[in-house]
Design a protein around this nucleic acid. Structure first.
Lengths: 348, 348
DNA sequence: TTTAGCACTCTATTCTCCCGAGTGCTAAAC
DNA sequence: GTTTAGCACTCGGGAGAATAGAGTGCTAAA
């Protein structure tokens, strides 16, 4: 049984109203706020049918209706009109992002804070998935005798440093030679193919200075762990505190469940990854309420999208808010931020 | 009127009980849980006096007493015994910190997460105050034509990178020469004395390649902003979500006020700075309830301490918890973490 | 100075009652 | 067949009222 036109309008109106007020919507209120050319009784019949079909639910007998997960799903899939961002808002976002520098971490931080501010919900930004990226540079800078800073630059534009200790009689020149050798041998190689052995081979093939084997190995080991560590995903999340002012989280237990889960970056990152795989090729991914397999997020909706670096490697940005979210607004915002990121990260 | 011995014991017992239960403590309960050799009526008299002196307060007439800010203050200043960390716990903390590398950002992140885990409250770790630190290294690495990574290393061990754009016909060699020139000219100079002018002079004095003035200036400007940006304070804060499970924050409004303030890193950092100045030379600083001038923290206590880098530059770590905090435990934990940081940051 | 005894106070809980918004159903109207 | 008016019914939530119980402060005696 398909939805006829009026039922669609009714569902849409109920979602809109509920999003605005967070109160169950009754047939009377619906008539008052919208220009349906029928009576409340007719709407009641429609609402009863919508409920039977699973699009609406009742908190209790004598309350109005609220959208079910399925109702929201129908809404985002075919009812809502994604509006364009106002020029004003676009300009503001642009401005906030352009203040940030081009290093990817800084950009993501800025993107996350912009999204949190603009949507009023929780924002998320993750560094690109690095499995398919490769090493472009490896530098070792002697900070003081015995202390070396390893700077790893990956093709995705990710930069990581790690301070390591080495025997303190090694000179800057020796260190530089080793790192140059490793860089030459490894640059262009996918991270997944870099192992302690490839590092060692690279060094020994390209190296000119003579160093005792064990000493060399020690330095190489540090270089290797630095490279491996650059593989870690960074997750930027902001705006959590704003959820507390929403009525759906006025019960501390609910907020606690949400925050507990969100405090585990890895869980969230993993979930985003999963969703991205499922909805490959979509412009944006939406998960609503129970569809989200993370604990404590069953009152939330999760919108994510993918940005690209160099046309290949991709990371995600997203927004977590209440199910009762201003979907079309958030979608247009998140899309705009993604466009800006793509632009900045793929500048010639 | 000074506190006689029994009154001290009573106050101490009340703080202990209240910390444990978060329920107002009555004379009967006090007798039950502690070995006072007097009757409840006697304690009632003592409690009435303690209240008059401002150490205790009553939520309402027929409830027990809870410690006032002044009561907690007396408790931490002279009543509580700071217990030593168990070997077990010390070992655990050591282990968590030793897994982290030696770069200061990583260490602080680890310190903050350790403190949050161990105390169960909110932890805080801030990078060293950099005004008195100086530049030790400046490297510019060409990532691709037109894109250069500027790595700034400061004496406090702080490392920052910034990606900048330059005209894309400049070569790695030219860039390296410029950055070497700047580094030579500026290393050892306090950050506060570095300006666009000193950068330019340094470059021109030490530089060997010839470059058109305007081109050179463009590169120098980027180097300068990268150096200046390294000056930013980083704040690591963890464990906020745990506060929601405490009865004092079961009211969402309270939690909201707290989180709103904590979401402004700068505010918190500024306050820590202020407290540190006030209590200079103390091993740790405590601020209780209304003593804290940050909005929304009037139900909290704030314990901070100072770690050192190179005997001079100092940063802070701290814990924010409910007034009803296990002071002695937290103090011993925070002190231990500080010791570990000092040790790691000042290793020869 | 301490203690026992007791009247008093105040909160938190529970129960009941009642209002009103909203529903579903029926029967009539279109 | 669809829409509408009318009406009885349901249920949550708020307002009192009653009650229990923990704790106090005071008085008078030890």
């Amino acid at each position: 049984m398909a939805l006829d036109n009026r039922k669609k309008e009714v569902l849409q109106a109920i979602v809109d109203d509920y999003v605005a007020t967070c109160e169950p919507v009754g047939s009377k209120a619906l008539i008052d706020r919208h220009d349906f050319m029928v009576s409340s009784a007719t709407l009641r019949n429609d609402m009863a049918e919508l409920e039977q079909m699973g699009y609406l639910e009742k908190p209790h007998t004598s309350a109005g209706r609220i959208p079910s997960d399925k109702g929201y799903r129908e809404y985002v899939d075919s009812l809502m009109k994604v509006d364009h961002l106002s020029d004003e808002e676009g300009r503001e976002i642009k401005e906030k992002l352009s203040m940030s520098f081009d290093e990817i971490a800084g950009l993501l931080k800025a993107a996350s804070s912009t999204l949190a501010d603009k949507t009023g919900y929780i924002s998320l930004a993750m560094t690109p998935k690095l499995t398919s990226s490769y090493l472009t540079q490896l530098k070792m800078l002697m900070i003081e005798p015995g202390k070396v800073l390893v700077v790893v630059v990956l093709s995705a534009g990710v930069v990581k440093n790690r301070m390591v200790r080495i025997p303190d009689f090694l000179t800057q020149e020796q260190i530089a030679q080793i790192s140059n050798a490793v860089e030459q041998g490894l640059s262009g190689l996918p991270l997944s193919e870099i192992s302690l052995i490839t590092v060692a081979t690279a060094a020994k093939d390209n190296q000119k200075v003579e160093l005792p084997e064990s000493l060399l190995n020690q330095v190489l080991y540090e270089a290797y762990t630095a490279i491996k560590q650059a593989d870690n995903l960074d997750v930027y999340m902001q705006g959590k505190h704003r959820m507390l002012s929403l009525p759906e989280f006025s019960d501390t237990k609910k907020a606690q469940g949400l925050f507990d889960t969100l405090s585990h970056d890895g869980l969230v990152a993993g979930y985003v990854d999963e969703v991205t795989k499922q909805d490959e090729k979509k412009e944006y991914m939406i998960r609503i309420g129970q569809e989200i397999t993370l604990e404590g997020l069953d009152n939330c909706s999760f919108i994510t999208t993918t940005y690209n670096v160099g046309g290949k490697v991709a990371g995600n940005i997203g927004v977590i808010g209440p199910k009762r979210m201003e979907y079309s607004k958030v979608i247009s915002q998140i899309n705009f931020v993604r466009m800006m990121l793509d632009e900045k990260l793929n500048q010639p």
